[in-house]
């Protein structure tokens, strides 16, 4: 069984962390992953930086720009990750925009991911329809889980359809926003979280966007299987470099 699915069966709320590969320094990728695992993080999203990240706010835009300036590329990332499974056992997901993946070659990219021990992909600008018609076959051939997003605006019918085709978890975007915007959840988020929870979907949901501290983590995981922290962790790296990662994680739960 894929590490993601195994993790989803554990009887606990999951904390997943996003970071941009190649940030703050090009060579920080491995130590950040290892420190996150040691700090008790359940799952990691390794951000493959892109020049034009449409769904991201200023924090992740800036970390992506820095990572690219530092020399991060798809090839460099794969090279850095080649022995990652010798030291790290939690699920690893690559999150990246479609163009760099397309230029690497979809099949070559998937093949490489499997060789390294990557478990899944999140590609925000690869639409569900394109995926199911053209790329599902390839992802499945390499045993990769593709993670789809839903938002407060996604219709119930579409959520049901996405649930049907999801093999891992559903990435529930907390509010209508790019990453790193909101840092408190109000009534509209709570009613959206409740609405989704009451749909009894087959795929567990993990909430992302706007989770920044213990309070928002609690709020989100009251309804969902887990939560993803991205911009807040990047901000931590901005302030502290790669130090004190364990402290940051300990403060979340």
């Amino acid at each position: 069984m894929n590490r993601i699915n195994k993790k989803l069966q554990e009887d606990k709320k999951l904390l997943s962390i996003y970071f941009t590969a190649g940030f703050p320094q090009l060579s920080d990728t491995i130590s950040i992953i290892e420190d996150l695992e040691k700090s008790g993080v359940d799952m990691i999203e390794i951000g493959l930086p892109f020049s034009d990240p449409l769904a991201d706010g200023p924090t992740i835009q800036a970390s992506s720009t820095t990572a690219l300036k530092n020399g991060m590329t798809t090839k460099v990332l794969f090279e850095q990750l080649k022995d990652i499974r010798k030291t790290v056992s939690i699920p690893l997901i690559i999150m990246g925009y479609f163009n760099p993946i397309m230029q690497y070659g979809i099949e070559a990219f998937c093949k490489k991911c499997t060789e390294i021990g990557i478990d899944g992909l999140i590609i925000p600008d690869l639409p569900v329809k394109e995926y199911t018609e053209n790329y599902k076959i390839i992802f499945e051939k390499y045993g990769l889980v593709n993670v789809f997003l839903i938002t407060p605006q996604t219709s119930n019918d579409r959520i049901k359809f996405i649930d049907e085709i999801s093999e891992g978890f559903i990435y529930m975007v907390s509010s209508a926003s790019v990453t790193g915007t909101k840092n408190i959840f109000g009534d509209s988020q709570n009613s959206y979280f409740e609405r989704i929870a009451s749909m009894n979907l087959k795929a567990p949901q993990i909430i992302g966007f706007g989770i920044s501290n213990a309070e928002t983590f609690q709020q989100a995981t009251k309804f969902a299987k887990g939560a993803i922290i991205g911009s807040a962790f990047i901000n931590h790296l901005n302030r502290n470099g790669t130090k004190l990662i364990d402290k940051f994680i300990a403060e979340i739960r």
Binding site: L126, P127, T151, V173
Partner: peptide, 11 residues
């Protein structure tokens, strides 16, 4: 062509 957009823009 096509519509390579994040889910947030889908509706």
């Amino acid at each position: 062509g096509g519509a390579y957009i994040p889910e947030m823009l889908y509706p």
